[in-house]
């Protein structure tokens, strides 16, 4: 319960950078750069987990799992498939300018909302105490940015990256909500995400070969 050994300043800086990398991941149009922003976020999450682990030693396992799955395996798949399909994202529904504004509003608004209303989301005293409170707000902000991206993008690979953001949000929230979660459960969650991303990209490569594009709006064969 004691959050003292953690440097609040460090956690806050890392957390804010995580939010910024989410916006970059959503907004960057060159898919490789977007994936690089995703890797940066993954490494920041690992750093966050390590700093939380000074309170809760089980989190060292989490940090290791996150490093292998989020910072190594998923980016590896992403880069592999981006090379085989197309480099530039299919233009999204919302133009760059408006999209950045929406993302910024979502980011600040949702962060403030969840930070002030944490007790609704998190029933435990630990999650309501500081650093874990900030962490939960960051987690839900990353989740919402991922959701925004899923709703407005039309490039299949970009949607997979958005899905990863969504998942990062849930993963971060676990630190505040469920620090006692056994490693087996955590490992199960993390490995399923890796398999999901792999299968999705495998199918998307098939889609690219058959349809000649990764634009999901052109997948209209079944509506006839």
């Amino acid at each position: 319960m004691n959050a003292l050994p953690i440097s609040e300043e460090l956690v806050r800086t890392l957390s804010m950078t995580v939010v910024i990398t989410s916006v970059l991941t959503v907004e960057l149009r060159r898919l490789k750069l977007s994936a690089v922003a995703y890797v940066a976020q993954a490494l920041l999450i690992v750093a966050l987990l390590v700093s939380y682990a000074r309170v809760n030693h089980a989190l060292y396992w989490w940090a290791g799992t996150a490093l292998v799955t989020k910072a190594v395996l998923i980016p590896w798949f992403l880069f592999r498939y981006i090379r085989r399909t197309q480099e530039m994202e299919v233009p999204p529904l919302v133009g760059f300018g408006p999209s950045v504004i929406v993302a910024a509003v979502l980011m600040t608004g949702f962060f403030r909302l969840t930070h002030s209303q944490v007790d609704l989301l998190a029933p435990s005293a630990l999650a309501q105490a500081e650093v874990f409170r900030t962490n939960l707000a960051v987690a839900s902000t990353v989740f919402v940015l991922g959701l925004y991206s899923l709703l407005t993008r039309r490039d299949a690979v970009k949607l997979v990256i958005a899905l990863c953001l969504l998942e990062n949000g849930v993963h971060l929230s676990l630190v505040s909500l469920a620090p006692g979660l056994p490693e087996t459960a955590l490992f199960g969650i993390a490995s399923e995400v890796v398999v999901t991303v792999f299968i999705l990209l495998y199918v998307i490569e098939g889609v690219y070969r058959e349809f000649g594009t990764t634009d999901t709006f052109r997948l209209r064969e079944l509506q006839r």
Binding site: L121, P123, L166, L174, L177, V203, G206, V207, L222
Partner: peptide, 28 residues
């Protein structure tokens, strides 16, 4: 392929919500 892509994508996004719900039940 179109059906498979939509199936995987929609179900995975949906199920991520369920993960959040399950974790919340456990935490509560």
């Amino acid at each position: 392929l179109e059906a498979g892509y939509k199936y995987m994508m929609l179900l995975t996004v949906g199920i991520t919500f369920a993960l959040f719900g399950c974790v919340l039940v456990y935490a509560a």
